[in-house]
């Protein structure tokens, strides 16, 4: 394939432009759906149906608002780490079958996990610690506590379906190869239970990664001001918000491919396939937003127990079942 296709893939679709637009749309849907759950209007005035409100908020933070710094702040380090986190998420899209220049290889799910789950959170934590504050430190310690349990659950919820779908196939443990065989996993009785357990673990761990209620204790507003975001302002806050939205967006996209089979039962790059992808993405987002709006915030020890019960244990059970049945 040509280098121009690669450049198009990483800058336009599904790279920078598409991912940032989808992240803004996702933020809009989260705000709008949450508002409707709470009998509010939500974003309504900027653009048709308020669609451009997230873009407007981002540009206002980036271009108009000032950076508020203290004598302890390391602004450049915060900016660079957030940009690096965003870059990792955007460049990971070439590992998705959605890309016109799709790179695949054995165990590419591990590279994908490293780029979309470990590095963005790591960069967010570094950015928070470069603008120190007691509230920031509490927020970061809480974030690390919940992620210690949620990340293994997220990892297992993705790796188990990839393992089952690509067993005996080439390339093994590849996302590009997985979505083709995922529908079969839902249709077989032996793997249906495993897929249900993986989906439950996935929903809970995405809720934690997005820091949505009931797991929003790391940025518990009112209690610890804004947690790890307390000292973020202006352009840095814009980058942090964008990184957060991209993190949720890429988690939902990989969920659509690995757990729900991507465009199945239709072909990729077809109108029907695109519609199915949008529907599956919206279903996952709706599940996450619904949990966000029907639950109250847990205290840190309650959150850890619930993530363990409903995230880690289903993920471990699905891993054990997969190994017992197929190894």
């Amino acid at each position: 394939m040509e280098i121009s296709t690669l450049i198009f893939s990483i800058t336009i679709f599904p790279g920078l432009l598409f991912m940032v637009s989808l992240a803004f749309l996702t933020q809009y849907l989260v705000r709008k759906l949450s508002a409707r759950y709470q009998r509010r209007m939500g974003p309504s005035y900027v653009g048709p149906f308020g669609l451009l409100q997230p873009l407007f908020d981002f540009l206002k933070l980036l271009r108009v608002k000032e950076i508020v710094k203290t004598k302890y702040s390391m602004i450049r380090a915060a900016e660079f780490s957030l940009i690096l986190g965003i870059a990792f998420i955007i460049s990971s899209t070439i590992l998705l079958p959605l890309s016109p220049y799709n790179v695949a290889g054995e165990f590419d799910i591990l590279v994908f996990f490293y780029m979309t789950s470990i590095m963005p959170i790591f960069m967010l934590i570094i950015a928070a610690l470069t603008t120190p504050n007691p509230y920031t430190n509490i927020g970061v310690s809480r974030l690390l506590s919940v992620l210690t349990i949620a990340e293994p659950a997220y990892f297992a919820s993705l790796v188990v379906p990839v393992y089952l779908a690509t067993r005996g196939k080439t390339p093994f443990m590849s996302i590009s190869n997985t979505y083709i065989y995922v529908p079969n996993l839902w249709l077989q009785a032996s793997t249906l239970v495993i897929m249900l357990l993986s989906t439950l673990a996935y929903i809970i761990s995405v809720q934690v990664k997005a820091m949505f209620p009931p797991f929003n204790i790391p940025e518990a507003e009112q209690e610890i001001i804004a947690g790890f975001e307390t000292e973020f302002s202006g352009p840095i806050l814009a980058l942090a918000r964008l990184l957060h939205d991209l993190d949720l967006t890429i988690a939902l996209i990989v969920g659509v491919y690995v757990l729900l089979g991507g465009p199945a039962p239709f072909r990729h790059f077809s109108v029907n396939g695109a519609i199915v992808l949008i529907i599956k993405y919206t279903i996952l987002l709706l599940a996450v937003v619904t949990v966000k709006n029907i639950m109250g915030r847990y205290r840190i020890e309650q959150a850890l127990t619930q993530i363990f019960k409903y995230g880690l244990i289903p993920a471990l059970l699905s891993s054990i079942f997969a190994l017992v049945i197929y190894h």
Binding site: M1, P97, S99, S176, I180, Y181, P183, N184, R267, H268
Partner: peptide, 12 residues
């Protein structure tokens, strides 16, 4: 394999 797929845009 459920449905009809191709991996022609994939570089392995």
């Amino acid at each position: 394999v459920y449905g009809c797929y191709s991996m022609k845009n994939t570089v392995i």
